[in-house]
Amino acid sequence: MASEKQVIILTEAASFQVKEMMVQNEEENASLRVAVKGGGCSGLSYGMAFEQTINDDDFVDSQHGIQIIVSKEDAGILQDTKIDFKQSLMGGGFTIDNPNALASCGCGTSFKAAARPAVEQPCE
């Protein structure tokens, strides 16, 4: 496992929501993996999932009682990315503020980054 390094900034509101989701999915002992994958109208999209396995080249950090995992490959693109959870009259959702994104799409689910060129796809 790579040394501990803060790549993601998880707000208290986001951590509260993640903990709630862990309980709902019976994943209380899991870690939160934050990743970048190809896809979306700007070429890259974010992924978050509960995971039990930590790979040797993963960066691991703990914030607000949540263990966060980011692969070495994704760490450069995600460095200093802030994940928050916003509640409104229309419901709630996670917001991702990535200072490494060159551009984001209109639907807010994908982005472009200089560190990893990707093929743009139509918005769904």
Rank of each mutant, 00 (worst) to 15 (best):
C41T: 08
L89Y: 15
T53C: 04
G43F: 02
P99H: 11
G106K: 13
E4A: 10
S88C: 02
V18G: 10
D80Q: 13
V34Y: 01
T11K: 01
G108T: 00
V119N: 12
Y46V: 07
E51Y: 04
L44R: 12
E27F: 06
I54H: 01
T95P: 02
F94V: 06
Q17M: 15
K112M: 07
N55C: 05
T95D: 07
I66L: 01
K5R: 13
E4T: 10
Y46T: 03
L32S: 02
I9H: 02
S88W: 15
K72V: 10
S15A: 07
S15Q: 00
I83V: 07
R116D: 05
A101E: 07
D97E: 05
K37L: 05
I83Y: 06
F94L: 09
E12M: 08
N100C: 09
G76M: 12
C41S: 07
S42M: 05
L89V: 09
G65A: 00
T109M: 13
V18L: 07
R33H: 05
K82S: 11
Q17R: 10
I96W: 01
D61F: 14
N55E: 14
L78F: 00
Y46D: 06
D80H: 08
M21L: 12
N25K: 14
I66Q: 06
V23W: 00
A75S: 02
G43W: 02
L10C: 09
A118N: 03
Q67Y: 02
K112I: 00
N25L: 04
A14F: 07
N25F: 00
S104V: 15
T95H: 11
L32M: 02
Q6M: 12
F50H: 01
Q63K: 03
D56Y: 13
V60T: 08
A118Y: 08
D74A: 13
D56C: 11
G108M: 03
R33S: 11
S3V: 15
I77F: 04
G38T: 15
E27A: 13
V7D: 06
D57V: 09
V119C: 03
A118R: 00
V119Q: 13
E12C: 06
F16T: 15
C123G: 00
V34L: 10
D97A: 14
G39Q: 03
K72Q: 13
V36M: 01
G76D: 00
N25Q: 12
A101N: 04
V119E: 14
P117L: 10
I68G: 00
Q17V: 10
A114N: 13
N29K: 13
S31V: 02
T53P: 09
D84C: 08
D61V: 15
I69A: 08
C107A: 08
S110M: 03
G65V: 09
G47S: 03
E26V: 07
I83E: 01
S88L: 13
